[in-house]
Lab assay of single mutants.
Amino acid sequence: KLLSSIEQACDICRLKKLKCSKEKPKCAKCLKNNWECRYSPKTKRSPLTRAHLTEVESRLERLE
Rank of each mutant, 00 (worst) to 15 (best):
K26R: 14
I12R: 11
P41Y: 05
S40C: 02
E55Q: 11
L31T: 11
K32G: 10
A9S: 03
K42Q: 11
E61S: 11
E57T: 04
L53I: 06
K16G: 01
K29Q: 07
T49M: 08
L31V: 12
N34F: 15
S21I: 02
T43F: 08
C10H: 01
R45T: 05
C30H: 05
I6K: 08
L15T: 10
C13M: 05
L60K: 10
S5F: 09
K22E: 05
T49H: 08
C13Q: 00
L53P: 07
S5P: 10
L2A: 13
K19D: 04
I12S: 06
L53V: 14
H52N: 07
C37H: 02
A51Q: 12
A51C: 10
L31D: 15
L63R: 08
K17G: 00
L60D: 00
S4H: 10
P41E: 07
S40G: 07
L15H: 10
R50G: 02
R45S: 03
L18G: 15
K19G: 15
E55L: 10
K19S: 06
C30A: 05
R45E: 07
W35H: 13
L60H: 05
N34L: 13
S40I: 03
K32T: 13
R50F: 01
K32F: 09
R14V: 01
W35N: 11
L60E: 04
L3E: 15
C13I: 07
T54Q: 09
C20W: 00
S4R: 05
R45P: 04
N33C: 12
E36F: 09
C20Q: 05
R45Q: 08
R50I: 04
C10P: 00
S21Y: 02
C10W: 00
W35T: 12
V56A: 01
R50N: 01
C27L: 03
E7G: 08
L63D: 02
L63V: 03
R38M: 15
C37A: 08
A28F: 10
P25D: 03
K16W: 04
K19T: 07
P25V: 02
L48G: 07
S40A: 08
V56D: 08
Y39N: 02
Y39G: 04
R14L: 05
K42P: 15
L31G: 14
I12Y: 14
K32M: 12
K22M: 04
L60S: 07
C10A: 07
E57L: 00
S40L: 04
